[in-house]
Nucleic acid binder design. Structure first.
Lengths: 331, 331
DNA sequence: TTGAAAGCGCTACCAA
DNA sequence: TTGGTAGCGCTTTCAA
């Protein structure tokens, strides 16, 4: 039988209440007794039951994180940061990879109130989740939200600015024929990055060389490159909506002997791990995963503290990381 | 105030016990009453408290999965499979990404008995975990274990056979000058794959063209290729210990205009997502993530059912996936 | 600074 | 087929 707080009390010769106090770091326990309790705990190899604690306290000490996939080094990093930030505050992180479209009527982390608060990382079904969370009165924070109206409790990266800066970088290198690859329209980030691109182009008095819209991923980049290659018309520079598309694009070019950045410059977005591993190392826009994680935890904990108060969203700036895939325009 | 089972009882005009029965799908409830209860539940938007349930039942209904990283499509797949298999049985999966070396004295999933059982996916600190789990009497299963002695409760992929098959594939294509890149020695899988390689070579009466040992990842593959390129001596075929090394290696070759598989064949291991995205599409050894996940859940649940009985480990075979990076030896 | 007692919300056991 | 009652292991008053 597992030891309970009762056993510890008996063994230490003190009351259950005192043991509980020691467990929770109350400072109203005589040092000598504290030691007795600690000894008893060690001897019995006792650990408090999470279930009993949650029940008694009315909260679980766990924060949930819902992600669509962790197979993405940006999400992965954010999750790690959140985990660490939370640990510092004595909270546990429960990650749930919700592939998305829910036959699962509603998420289990929500269903049984297993969490005190929730962080949604780039949620696809944002509105459904948010509605549910509001109804349940569960504090939450959105990262990289899609819906403008949810800006109140969200951390986002300024994608417009990211698209703008990326394009500016190419422009400053002397490029005039610049194309853009974008991902799914459903993502607000997709549209914003493109707007940033268009803005920078317009500002420079230029028309986009080409724009393609597809699905984030290596394949789309590869295929687009092949298509363009076949048509014989290539821009001198490309702003890809994410690193994977950029990598796929470069991959296709390399196979045709077209060199990056000698023959063409390519900039990606996200600074995926792969971006700094595959050659040519990719110039890209980095999303500040660490700040994002910290900010999310900060806002969430605040919200949990003063239920009533309304928080303001935070918008972070992405950072241009110059590597090897972009260079001044040839000739 | 949140509705409790008591409120549902009151509202439905039945007892708490009956409500509990309905909640747990007992078939000893009159259909009419069942409906009453269901209605009350809906009206009150009631959900059972996970904490109270766990406390009363003595188990949490949650299975923990400890992984070092999910930023790996193999781990990611296995995790998904486990999640689904578990859901089918009414269990929840709590994933915990434990970067490894624990200042965290002992893992929180273990610490507070938040789980009924634990699955360890390719654990680095296997012995520490296993010792702890045995002590706590928590049922567990290891996937891809490092220590031979833990084979009792483990699912592993036959890495020896994988290394052997991969090499055979190259051999059958007519290659004679075959090199091997391996990862960290700490991993049993690393050593086994190499042994498989060596065995196949020996069987064919051949000496390895070269063998390098480094760290799993794109970089090591890239650097090794560069080194070999510089020395001017390349094998006609390479068996890389994992896909990332293979990809890095190919990446370096491509930059020098050396084509795969025309000039050299490369086979990887794991069938990472990237392997089927980057061109040339990588020939590789696939680990059967689905079977692994299923088997792990199966064994774990069995162990949980009959605490006493000893299970036998399972060893699965990897599968050769032929894509574009290997071809018959030239000339 | 300590402890007795009353829950937290649910399930399990025993009767009816 | 139903319900009363006693816990599950902990925290939180409230008194002492």
């Amino acid at each position: 039988m597992k030891a309970s707080i009762f056993d510890v009390a008996k063994r230490s010769g003190l009351s259950v209440v005192t043991v509980s106090r020691v467990l929770n770091g109350a400072d109203t326990v005589r040092e000598k007794n504290r030691q007795k309790v600690l000894d008893a705990i060690k001897e019995l190899d006792y650990r408090p039951s999470a279930a009993a604690r949650s029940l008694a306290r009315g909260r679980t000490g766990t924060i949930g994180l819902i992600v669509t996939t962790l197979h993405d080094s940006f999400f992965d990093s954010v999750a790690k940061e959140i985990n660490d930030a939370l640990a510092l505050q004595g909270y546990y992180l429960a990650i749930s990879v919700s592939s998305g479209f829910g036959n699962e009527e509603s998420h289990y982390l929500i269903q049984e109130d297993r969490v005190d608060g929730l962080i949604l990382l780039s949620p696809l079904e944002e509105d459904r989740f948010v509605a549910e969370l509001k109804k349940r009165n569960i504090p939450y924070v959105l990262i990289d939200n899609q819906l403008q109206e949810n800006n109140s409790a969200s951390i986002s990266v300024d994608n417009f600015s990211g698209g703008y800066e990326a394009t500016r970088h190419l422009l400053e290198l002397g490029h005039r024929e610049i194309a853009h690859l974008s991902g799914q329209e459903v993502f607000l980030s997709t549209r914003e990055r493109r707007q940033g691109f268009l803005w920078a182009m317009k500002e420079a008095g230029l028309e986009p060389f080409a724009m393609e819209q597809g699905v984030y991923g290596v394949e789309f980049g590869y295929e687009t490159a092949q298509k363009w290659l076949k048509s014989g018309k290539l821009p001198t520079a490309l702003f890809a909506g994410d690193d994977h598309m950029a990598i796929g694009f470069i991959n296709a070019l390399m196979r045709e002997g077209i060199q990056v950045p000698r023959d063409m410059s390519v900039i990606g977005y996200d600074d995926q791990m792969l971006a700094s591993q595959l050659h040519p190392l990719l110039t890209t826009m980095r999303q500040p995963a660490d700040h994002i994680g910290l900010a999310a935890v900060d806002i969430l904990l605040r919200k949990m503290a003063n239920q009533n108060k309304r928080m303001n969203g935070i918008k972070l700036k992405p950072e241009l990381i110059i590597r090897q895939s972009t260079a001044a325009r040839g000739e």
